[in-house]
């Protein structure tokens, strides 16, 4: 259920207070903001970086940078969007570094992908608000998955079970499970696109 207008105002108000406290150096207040926004930031970084521990490290760097430069946040954009801007910058820096490193090591597939992701992010400057909305749309779309598909998504992403474990439990081959997950993600992506298009209209 979407939040009521009153609750939205309350949340924004709370966030405003936490930002003000953080500006005065209150790290505990900022940690609340970290808790509230880490999912979006991780999702954004994870959308281009395929290594969970790197996503984690980069997300930490994003929040550290945000904390250090909080004075520059003027409130023109929602705080979450501002954070995603920093996440974009950090991810871009990381990927550019990866491209240089991989070019030395000749890891062709990873190099091609890192290079592509750099280009995507370079073109992504104006899309921060859209990324915010994508996350919300994805949550709605998850609720509309058929039960069997929802269960598989839950097993893989919410219970963190390996492909091998899921395959064993369901009596399927690992390749089949991977392809099923790919199809489910395709469904989710189409659903997200549809919702965003509808919102825009």
């Amino acid at each position: 259920m979407p939040p009521s207008p009153d609750r939205t105002v309350d949340a924004a108000d709370d966030e405003g207070r936490l930002i003000e406290k953080s500006r005065r150096g209150d790290a505990a207040a900022f940690t609340h903001l970290v808790s509230a926004h880490q999912g979006r930031v991780r999702a954004y970084i994870g959308g281009t970086v395929n290594r969970p521990e790197v996503v984690d490290d980069l997300a930490q760097e994003v929040f550290l940078s945000a904390f250090r430069s909080l004075e520059t946040y003027k409130g023109e954009a929602p705080f979450g969007v501002w954070l995603l801007g920093i996440a974009r910058h950090k991810t871009l820096m990381h990927l550019r570094h990866e491209v240089r490193r991989l070019a030395r090591e000749s890891r062709s597939l990873n190099l091609v992908l890192a290079d592509l992701q750099v280009k995507v992010l370079e073109a992504d400057e104006m899309l921060m608000a859209r990324r915010e909305r994508e996350m919300a749309a994805l949550q709605r779309c998850l609720e509309r998955l058929p039960p069997q598909g929802a269960e598989m998504i839950a097993e893989r992403y919410f219970r963190a079970r390996s492909i091998a474990d899921i395959a064993k439990a369901s009596g399927k081959r690992e390749g089949t499970v991977r392809m099923s997950l790919l199809r489910l993600r395709q469904v989710l992506r189409a659903c997200v696109e549809q919702r965003l298009t509808k919102e825009q209209a």
């Binding site: 999702a43 970084i45 994870g46 959308g47 281009t48 970086v49 995507v120 893989r156 992403y157």
Partner: peptide, 15 residues
């Protein structure tokens, strides 16, 4: 690349 974005978002949601 769009698929990877969904994968990243699902991983983040599933933590």
């Amino acid at each position: 690349l769009g698929d990877q974005r969904i994968e990243g978002a699902l991983c983040a949601l599933g933590r």
